[in-house]
Write a protein that binds this DNA or RNA. Sequence first.
DNA 1: AAAGAAAGTGAATGAACGTTCATTTACTTT
DNA 2: AAAGTAAATGAACGTTCATTCACTTTCTTT
Lengths: 179, 179
Amino acid sequence: MTAAAALFAEQGYRATTMRDIARELGVTPGAIYAHFSSKQDLLLAVYRLGVTMIGERVDMAVKAAGTPWERLEAAFRAHIESLVDASPFASVIVRILPGDAPEIGDRLIALRDDYEDRFKRLFDDLDTQRDQSLPRLLALGALNWVPAWYAPGGESPAAIAAALCALLRGGARAGEPAP
Amino acid sequence: MTAAAALFAEQGYRATTMRDIARELGVTPGAIYAHFSSKQDLLLAVYRLGVTMIGERVDMAVKAAGTPWERLEAAFRAHIESLVDASPFASVIVRILPGDAPEIGDRLIALRDDYEDRFKRLFDDLDTQRDQSLPRLLALGALNWVPAWYAPGGESPAAIAAALCALLRGGARAGEPAP
DNA sequence: AAAGAAAGTGAATGAACGTTCATTTACTTT
DNA sequence: AAAGTAAATGAACGTTCATTCACTTTCTTT
């Protein structure tokens, strides 16, 4: 599953062949079918594990943080770290679109919705009167696009999370003393 | 090219076959090769046209706007509209990743960089001292992720652009009178 | 009307795809 | 040691893929 996750995340679902995965493992393609009934089944298992892993990592980070804004920033940081660190499972969630495997698309959507519900709650806990669904969707988009430009030498996940949180709190004037 | 753009945007590059495109046009697959030397060549042409179209649309919107912040918001709105309206060319830019067609990946990256340079300039024109590269990357990510959750009945492109611009200007307190 | 170019056909190509299966290997349990 | 189970093999399957090509149709130019 690790090999499959890495290839799915790197090349996409359609571009990754069962032979690719088998070669990475040093086995024959047929061997995979002793563990997964189909390529879609393998993707579903990888996707499910990815959602579980990033979910637990975010939950743990949130639990360790104090105020609602700190909790949100911790969630951002954990989300980004999950996407850019060595473990490829979380990346699959962002890289594979439900339409890539139409027959299990509904289940992929449900899994991702389960994960993203966390952020709905985190935004609701902020003490702003305004409806937060648009900021939440924009923030999640900004987060999920990070792998497209992230470079190990550049801004750290913590710095990116802080910057996004600052935007939500105070816009371009972030860093100045809060009122 | 329109048929190819629609299918590339909807299903992705790998999942779209030359037969799909030919069927959509009511011709035989071989007929396409009278106009494009390969599938990659077709993608490149579609991508290039997509960049041109969204670029012109953004340029036009920017030109019609006044202050730097209004120009940025106009660019956001034009970008979103290009991604969600009926024309499928712009969507290709967001949907197809350079890794989908490795042999022309470099050229795809170059084309997208050319387009995104506009936003670099728009951010530079804002009268903030702070470095705007992180906000710019986050904002572009938020924009490019819009097609993942946009629904025709919901928030309009203009509303989404305004919300994102408000975040950059004033965070969660957006809508209150500016200082 | 003739000539030439452009566009499209229909059939074929080799390669690569997901998947299957009888058989063998390696390991665990008795 | 015997029996049973899980994992892996190696070869094949039917299908689909991008691409090619000799040939015909359609259009444009003279």
